[in-house]
Write a protein that binds this DNA or RNA. Structure first.
Lengths: 104, 104
DNA sequence: TTGACATATCGAAAAAAATCGATATATAAT
DNA sequence: ATTATATATCGATTTTTTTCGATATGTCAA
């Protein structure tokens, strides 16, 4: 986790929102596309299309956001068939918060 | 403290360095300009010129960096005569670390 | 009051990031 | 096989950030 990449990924309102929404997917994505049983899908994350619907940005922009957040270490993804599910990488985020507290 | 402004301020190697150096000014600015007795000057922070010497960037760039870090809430400044001393705003940083831990 | 110094601000040029539509790729359904 | 759907990638444009030198402002010393 490169601190600068993490900070850059967090320097945008929409990306910050996405990270926030993914903290409680059931709450923020109630009408989640019914591709998979709820348990699987929430555990595994939220698919790009559903995230895109909430974030008001184009498909390519959202895809790019998610990719950069993943590269920064904030998110992880799983692919189920044609869908990619993104979820928070809680362990990495926790570690980064610790780094922040001690090093910044 | 606007989180996004803070994250932006932290999205740069030199600015991150400055914040780090100011954590232990005695260690990183041993040859501090002798304008003021050491106690006063370290307590009050480090002057722009000394920071500029370490950060390899132009005077205007460093001044701009410090200004944006202050606006973000990470630094505070005191003016003694013709010098401006910058130091960390520890209380704000602590608060922000807490925000990070609970909200991000 | 003039000259030297520290810092801030201005204005412009260069570099990087954001953003989109179009297209590619991969999977699924018919 | 063909078509539809989800996501990723490409290429181009716009916007933002970075960075500098020049200049302005404020302070101190002679």
């Amino acid at each position: 986790m490169e601190p600068i990449d993490v900070f850059k990924a967090l320097s945008n309102k929409t990306r910050l929102n996405i990270l926030h929404w993914l903290k409680e997917p059931e709450k923020h994505f109630p009408k989640q596309g019914a591709h998979l049983p709820k348990e699987v899908s929430y555990k595994g994350g939220v698919c790009v299309g559903d995230i895109q619907d909430k974030a008001e940005a184009s498909q390519s922009t959202v895809s790019h956001y998610l990719n950069m957040m993943q590269k920064a270490g904030l998110l992880e993804s799983v692919r189920y068939g044609q869908w990619t599910y993104y979820r928070r990488n809680e362990e990495a985020i926790r570690q980064f918060a610790e780094y922040f507290q001690t090093e910044i």
